[in-house]
Amino acid sequence: MPWENIFTWTNSWALVCWLILAFAPHRDRVLPYVFYLGCGVLALTYASLILPLMAGWIDDGGPVGRAPADFTKLSGVMSLFASPGGATIGWIHYLAFDLFVGIWVARNADRHGYLRIVQVPILFFVFMLGPIGLLLYLILRTTTKGKPENSTLPS
Protein backbone atom coordinates (compact mmCIF):
# COMPACT_ATOMS: atom_id res chain seq x y z
CA MET A 1 0.00 0.00 0.00
CA PRO A 2 1.20 3.54 -0.65
CA TRP A 3 0.89 4.49 3.03
CA GLU A 4 2.84 7.74 2.68
CA ASN A 5 0.50 8.93 -0.10
CA ILE A 6 -2.60 8.00 1.88
CA PHE A 7 -1.19 9.80 4.93
CA THR A 8 -0.43 12.95 2.89
CA TRP A 9 -3.81 12.95 1.15
CA THR A 10 -5.84 12.54 4.34
CA ASN A 11 -3.77 15.16 6.17
CA SER A 12 -4.32 17.63 3.33
CA TRP A 13 -8.03 16.83 3.14
CA ALA A 14 -8.47 17.37 6.87
CA LEU A 15 -6.57 20.68 6.73
CA VAL A 16 -8.82 21.96 3.94
CA CYS A 17 -11.89 20.97 5.97
CA TRP A 18 -10.53 22.75 9.06
CA LEU A 19 -9.82 25.91 7.10
CA ILE A 20 -13.35 25.88 5.69
CA LEU A 21 -14.76 25.22 9.16
CA ALA A 22 -12.85 28.12 10.70
CA PHE A 23 -13.08 30.75 7.99
CA ALA A 24 -16.00 30.07 5.62
CA PRO A 25 -18.69 32.71 5.61
CA HIS A 26 -22.28 31.54 6.13
CA ARG A 27 -21.04 28.58 8.11
CA ASP A 28 -24.55 27.27 8.74
CA ARG A 29 -24.81 26.41 5.04
CA VAL A 30 -21.27 25.01 4.85
CA LEU A 31 -21.29 22.76 7.93
CA PRO A 32 -23.26 19.87 6.39
CA TYR A 33 -20.70 19.69 3.58
CA VAL A 34 -17.78 19.76 5.99
CA PHE A 35 -19.51 17.09 8.05
CA TYR A 36 -20.26 14.66 5.21
CA LEU A 37 -17.37 15.43 2.89
CA GLY A 38 -14.91 15.94 5.74
CA CYS A 39 -15.78 13.48 8.49
CA GLY A 40 -17.58 11.16 6.09
CA VAL A 41 -14.71 10.83 3.65
CA LEU A 42 -12.19 10.37 6.46
CA ALA A 43 -14.41 7.74 8.11
CA LEU A 44 -14.89 5.95 4.79
CA THR A 45 -11.13 6.01 4.18
CA TYR A 46 -10.54 4.65 7.67
CA ALA A 47 -13.07 1.84 7.18
CA SER A 48 -11.74 0.97 3.73
CA LEU A 49 -8.27 0.53 5.23
CA ILE A 50 -8.84 -0.92 8.71
CA LEU A 51 -11.23 -3.69 7.68
CA PRO A 52 -8.99 -5.18 4.94
CA LEU A 53 -5.96 -4.78 7.21
CA MET A 54 -7.67 -6.64 10.05
CA ALA A 55 -8.77 -9.34 7.61
CA GLY A 56 -5.17 -9.76 6.41
CA TRP A 57 -5.94 -8.69 2.84
CA ILE A 58 -3.44 -5.82 2.85
CA ASP A 59 0.00 -5.44 4.42
CA ASP A 60 0.67 -2.70 6.97
CA GLY A 61 4.31 -2.46 5.93
CA GLY A 62 5.58 -3.13 9.46
CA PRO A 63 8.47 -5.26 10.61
CA VAL A 64 8.03 -9.00 10.88
CA GLY A 65 8.07 -10.48 14.37
CA ARG A 66 6.72 -7.52 16.29
CA ALA A 67 4.34 -7.99 19.22
CA PRO A 68 0.76 -8.83 18.23
CA ALA A 69 -1.82 -6.07 18.36
CA ASP A 70 -3.58 -6.05 21.71
CA PHE A 71 -5.78 -3.23 23.00
CA THR A 72 -5.38 -4.34 26.63
CA LYS A 73 -1.61 -3.81 26.84
CA LEU A 74 0.56 -0.81 26.09
CA SER A 75 2.99 -2.96 24.08
CA GLY A 76 0.09 -4.26 21.99
CA VAL A 77 -1.17 -0.76 21.23
CA MET A 78 2.37 0.38 20.44
CA SER A 79 2.62 -2.52 18.04
CA LEU A 80 -0.38 -1.17 16.15
CA PHE A 81 1.51 2.07 15.48
CA ALA A 82 4.83 0.36 14.66
CA SER A 83 4.05 0.20 10.95
CA PRO A 84 3.29 2.73 8.22
CA GLY A 85 -0.19 1.26 7.81
CA GLY A 86 -1.00 1.24 11.50
CA ALA A 87 0.26 4.79 12.03
CA THR A 88 -1.62 6.05 8.97
CA ILE A 89 -4.88 4.39 9.95
CA GLY A 90 -4.52 5.57 13.55
CA TRP A 91 -3.87 9.10 12.33
CA ILE A 92 -6.96 9.03 10.11
CA HIS A 93 -8.94 7.98 13.19
CA TYR A 94 -7.66 11.10 15.01
CA LEU A 95 -8.34 13.34 12.01
CA ALA A 96 -11.94 12.16 11.66
CA PHE A 97 -12.83 12.43 15.34
CA ASP A 98 -11.06 15.75 15.91
CA LEU A 99 -12.87 17.22 12.90
CA PHE A 100 -16.17 15.89 14.27
CA VAL A 101 -15.48 17.58 17.62
CA GLY A 102 -14.46 20.77 15.82
CA ILE A 103 -17.74 20.80 13.91
CA TRP A 104 -19.65 20.32 17.15
CA VAL A 105 -17.71 23.16 18.83
CA ALA A 106 -18.27 25.51 15.87
CA ARG A 107 -21.96 24.71 15.60
CA ASN A 108 -22.51 25.00 19.35
CA ALA A 109 -20.52 28.23 19.53
CA ASP A 110 -22.57 29.70 16.69
CA ARG A 111 -25.80 28.78 18.49
CA HIS A 112 -24.60 30.47 21.65
CA GLY A 113 -23.45 33.63 19.92
CA TYR A 114 -19.67 33.38 20.19
CA LEU A 115 -17.90 35.47 17.59
CA ARG A 116 -15.58 33.80 15.12
CA ILE A 117 -12.61 35.61 16.64
CA VAL A 118 -13.24 33.67 19.87
CA GLN A 119 -13.92 30.40 18.07
CA VAL A 120 -10.87 30.26 15.81
CA PRO A 121 -8.26 29.86 18.59
CA ILE A 122 -10.37 27.16 20.23
CA LEU A 123 -10.82 25.39 16.90
CA PHE A 124 -7.05 25.57 16.42
CA PHE A 125 -6.57 23.80 19.75
CA VAL A 126 -9.17 21.17 18.83
CA PHE A 127 -7.33 20.64 15.54
CA MET A 128 -3.87 20.43 17.08
CA LEU A 129 -4.51 19.05 20.57
CA GLY A 130 -8.04 17.57 20.39
CA PRO A 131 -9.12 17.14 24.00
CA ILE A 132 -7.43 20.38 25.14
CA GLY A 133 -9.44 22.36 22.58
CA LEU A 134 -12.63 20.67 23.70
CA LEU A 135 -11.75 21.40 27.32
CA LEU A 136 -11.12 25.07 26.49
CA TYR A 137 -14.51 25.32 24.83
CA LEU A 138 -16.29 23.63 27.73
CA ILE A 139 -14.57 26.01 30.16
CA LEU A 140 -15.60 28.98 28.01
CA ARG A 141 -19.21 27.79 27.87
CA THR A 142 -19.33 27.04 31.58
CA THR A 143 -17.92 30.40 32.61
CA THR A 144 -19.77 32.66 30.17
CA LYS A 145 -23.12 31.14 29.25
CA GLY A 146 -24.86 30.22 32.45
CA LYS A 147 -25.43 26.93 34.17
CA PRO A 148 -22.68 24.34 33.83
CA GLU A 149 -25.11 21.54 33.03
CA ASN A 150 -26.25 23.51 29.99
CA SER A 151 -22.68 24.07 28.86
CA THR A 152 -21.74 20.44 28.66
CA LEU A 153 -24.76 19.04 26.86
CA PRO A 154 -23.99 18.55 23.17
CA SER A 155 -26.81 20.73 21.94
Results as ranks from 00 to 15, higher is better:
residue 2 P to E: 10
residue 2 P to M: 05
residue 4 E to A: 14
residue 4 E to T: 09
residue 5 N to Q: 10
residue 5 N to Y: 07
residue 7 F to C: 01
residue 10 T to D: 10
residue 12 S to D: 09
residue 13 W to I: 10
residue 17 C to Q: 15
residue 17 C to K: 06
residue 18 W to Y: 10
residue 20 I to L: 15
residue 20 I to Y: 14
residue 30 V to K: 03
residue 31 L to R: 05
residue 35 F to S: 12
residue 35 F to R: 14
residue 39 C to P: 08
residue 47 A to N: 13
residue 47 A to M: 13
residue 48 S to Y: 00
residue 50 I to D: 07
residue 51 L to F: 07
residue 54 M to I: 13
residue 55 A to N: 15
residue 57 W to D: 11
residue 58 I to P: 04
residue 58 I to L: 04
residue 61 G to N: 07
residue 69 A to R: 11
residue 70 D to R: 09
residue 72 T to K: 12
residue 72 T to Y: 14
residue 72 T to P: 05
residue 79 S to A: 07
residue 79 S to C: 04
residue 81 F to W: 04
residue 86 G to H: 02
residue 86 G to C: 04
residue 87 A to D: 00
residue 92 I to N: 00
residue 97 F to R: 07
residue 99 L to K: 08
residue 101 V to H: 03
residue 101 V to A: 09
residue 105 V to Q: 07
residue 106 A to S: 13
residue 109 A to I: 08
residue 112 H to K: 11
residue 115 L to D: 15
residue 118 V to K: 07
residue 118 V to M: 12
residue 119 Q to G: 15
residue 120 V to Y: 02
residue 122 I to Q: 07
residue 124 F to T: 09
residue 125 F to S: 15
residue 126 V to A: 03
residue 126 V to I: 08
residue 128 M to L: 12
residue 128 M to A: 13
residue 129 L to M: 09
residue 130 G to W: 00
residue 131 P to G: 11
residue 135 L to D: 15
residue 138 L to F: 09
residue 140 L to I: 02
residue 140 L to W: 05
residue 144 T to P: 13
residue 145 K to A: 09
residue 146 G to E: 10
residue 147 K to Y: 01
residue 148 P to N: 09
residue 148 P to S: 10
residue 149 E to D: 11
residue 151 S to V: 05
residue 154 P to E: 13
residue 155 S to D: 14
residue 155 S to E: 12
